[in-house]
Design a protein around this nucleic acid. Structure first.
Lengths: 222, 222
DNA sequence: TTTGCGCCATGAGAATTTTAATAGTAGAAG
DNA sequence: CTTCTACTATTAAAATTCTCATGGCGCAAA
């Protein structure tokens, strides 16, 4: 999932960029309104985080322009406490949510997830090369052949495919798939990656799940 | 967790009540403003859901009065689309969030969870009789003795204790602890309840985890 | 190119989790 | 009070998941 942040304060956008990237979002920054609008209109993004007060074109103007072309992409405003009442105007121009500064990162994350959920929920079928994964039936196919996977194997594959093309860090995999948030020190991931590669018969020609040395794994088309 | 809904339309409050109770919240309804304020001020609730347009004392007035005594209890407004701009005024008077009608139940649920999270996060130690469960160290004690539990055993016990005093339906347990949201047809819960009762040595005198025939289980003080 | 280090792959065994079968029990019906 | 039925308790075995040890391999430095 790609997120565009339009925000001029480095303290804030660096904090956001780092945090969101750790959550496996792909993040771009625009420090100024005109550039932000231009990037937003490129259509590359799944969600916009707009600062209310940004130099150049205002956040609300970006939102309005953006909405002309993109009716479904969620927009969240970051607003200072004392401009909350203006922000409501932003909501009327098509923003989906706003969050008051200072905010807890966790809360922002929740709101982002809420906004992105309906869209990702629509698609219950994901593809990776000739592999098809269906989250509603919990089935996996390699070409025409159904592959029987266990719960954890399925969950791991789903995580990798949902983040197709993005490097998945071990720590993030452990958190998302195993729900372990504390002293992480285990080799389970390797074992299950191994199991997936075997069951899916991924040889050298079909190396869809690649190792990223020192970091984790990545699922990608060849 | 106890939630008070102040809302006059039966169609809405019944829908909310049922949905939230399925999520193991305890829900009360006030169909009218004066009664709603009175109930809110009783201090029994962990969260308020206020309709903006409610007969008698207005939602915003309830919120303002309530805030005088309860600084930390979250308040969420349910607002019709065409009164959004007034709602901002509600946010300024101390509401924590609002949601536009018509809304997706899932989204409301997320927002409720967000608001309740910080409070429940504060406490990492839960008690049930002489049993102590610590979520940050992942330890469980029966009186002074530490009891070694496996992951699933711990998760199940945590779920039961977090919902202490409330009946936990099998379907909810399966969803929360096992993360299974589809055709549920298994006897795992029974097996793990059994394991917990054994490990915690719950005899007839210390029947902290009781069976609710046909529904599920309940953890309660004696 | 060779060496050395550290990370990853792999396989086997241990522990946990799940299934499935049987026995037991509460509550309804007769 | 007895019987029947449906649900729960308990146990053992099967399946999955996890740990651990060993060997292999990539990458960097010499």
């Amino acid at each position: 999932m790609r997120i565009l942040i339009v925000e001029d304060e480095p303290g804030i956008f660096n904090f956001l960029k780092q945090g969101l990237e750790e959550e496996s979002y792909a993040v771009d920054i625009a420090e100024e309104g005109k550039k932000g609008l231009e990037m937003a209109l490129s259509g590359e993004y799944d969600l916009l985080l707009l600062d209310w007060m940004v130099p150049g074109v205002s956040g609300i103007e970006i939102c309005r322009q953006f909405r002309k072309d993109f009716k479904d992409t969620p927009v969240i405003f970051l607003t200072a406490k004392d401009t909350v009442d203006e922000t409501i105007f932003g909501l009327q121009t098509g923003a989906n949510d706003y969050i008051k500064k200072p905010f807890h990162f966790e809360e922002l994350l929740e709101r982002i997830k809420v906004q992105l959920r309906p869209k990702s929920g629509e698609h219950s079928v994901f593809k990776l090369g000739n592999i098809t994964l269906n989250t509603s039936t919990h089935q996996v196919f390699k070409a025409e052949e159904e592959i029987a996977l266990t719960q954890k194997e399925f969950a791991l594959l789903e995580y990798l495919i949902r983040n197709k093309g993005l490097v998945c860090r071990r720590s993030r995999i452990i958190e998302s798939v195993w729900d372990i948030h504390f002293d992480y020190n285990t080799g389970v991931i390797d074992v299950f990656i191994n199991a997936l590669r075997n069951k899916l018969k991924l040889g050298k020609e079909e190396n869809y799940i690649q190792t990223v040395r020192g970091v984790g794994y990545i699922a990608k088309e060849l």
